[in-house]
Every structure is written in C-alpha cells, then in structure tokens.
Amino acid sequence: MTVALLDAPPVTSAALTFDAPDAIWGVGSAPMAGGLVHYPLSNRDVMADVDWAEKRLRALGVGAGSLIDLVHNYSECGQFWPYYLAAMRLGAQVMNGMATPWDAGRVEMYVRRFPLHAVLGVGPQTLEGLAMFGFDAGQVFGDLAVVGARGRAAATLEALNLRPHRMTLLGPLILIAAPGEDAAYDMAEWTLETDEDGRILVTSGAGRAARYARLDTGFRGRVADGRVGLEDGE
C-alpha cells in the first residue's frame, strides 16, 4: 500500500530560527504517479542535498571555474536548488534556463556565448524549442563535456551521436546516470524500493521534514546497492 503523509510545515518564528537546521526553507513539488505533490524542505534537508549534489557534480567533472547551465522550471527548485549551492561550493558559476520550448533560445545563447562545461536538465521541450528556433541540437550541445538529458530527450540526442547523461526527477530526487550506467541515489536520505509490479517507491529519511512512505514515483525499474535503473524509455 502506498501512503503519503504530507503535513504543512509548521509556521514558526523565523526571526528566531531563520537558519536553524529544522526551520523550513521552502515547499517544493514532486512529480509522482498521482500528480504533483508538495513537500517541505528544511535547512537541514537542503544542506544534506547539497552534500550529495556536490558529489554528483564532482563526478561530472565540475570544479572551480566551471560554468554550468541548470535547465529547470520554477516548480523544480526544491530538487535543483542544492545543485546551485553545490556548484558554488565547488567554485563553479551557475546559469539557468527554463525547461520550456520558448526558453530554448536562452539555453542556446548561454552555450554560444560561454565555454560551458555542462548543461543539466535538457528535456524534450528544450529540443522542441531549439527546432522551433531553427537550431540543430547536435551542434548546440556537441562540444559540451556533459549534457544531462531528461526523458525522451536522451534518446533524441543519442540519435545525434551525442552521449548524454540521463537525468530524471524521481519525485523529490534528481537521478543522474552516466551513459550505460544506473544512477546512484543518497541512501542516507531516501529509501527506494520496488513493488511487485516493478514500480519504484520512495520513502523519506527520518531526518527530513517531508514524510513520505512508499510513495509511487510513477517509474518502473530496479533498485539495488544504492543505484536505480529505470526501464527503457523512462
């Protein structure tokens, strides 16, 4: 049985507890099987996710002086914000664009004007927008060390002879999988498991402000040894 416990975060005196670990930083939204659900993030949660994001960015070769473009919509700030802070902790600079057809023009502009190391979060909408504006996605992303592609965009870029990492918003988690590999996840913060039908369920760690219990992420795949492999096409 899938149960979600998503209480409203307590309104406390932020003047007294502003940077306290358990003070609520914000309320994000996570795409789940049943639609978007909202979940609170505490300062502690953000910093735990920054620690994890720092490891992921290091693995992608991001370091001091790197320029990275995070392509995400505002509702995804809960998942992407730790990547901003982690990049800054590493001495990298962050640009941002939205995962919409219209904003593909800004993604292209950043790649054209800056020696970017990585663009993370390219989705089908970005590719649709690039085509709409007359850009060749293979040329736009061809010289980058790392492209993180979401959903069907990964296969589209592979067809253009690129080797994108696969990025997935698995509810409140961001998964980044190198080509041909499964994605690691933060076992200290989340429990992932599959049910009898192969659906991936997420349970939040004890220290987190959000309390998820076996929430259906809407994805199918396998979970083993701290890694997640999504079914083909996911």
């Binding site: 932020a14 003047a15 914000g26 995400h72 919509n73 505002y74 509702s75």
Partner: peptide
C-alpha cells in the same frame, strides 16, 4: 517572517526564493 509566499515564478534572472528567504518568509514554489 514566517509567512508563506506563493511563488508562481520563472527562472530568468536568478531565483525569486532567495529574496523571499531574505525577508524571512517561506516560498511555495510553482
């Protein structure tokens, strides 16, 4: 401080939630 701000926002010039947090409030991000 402690209030909620409904942020139906964009990611153009940075992110608005930094200012909401500087004001001591809690952003609801959509």
């Amino acid at each position: 401080p402690g209030d909620y701000v409904l942020e139906l926002s964009t990611v153009l010039r940075g992110v608005a939630h930094r200012i909401t947090r500087a004001a001591g409030a809690i952003p609801l991000m959509l």
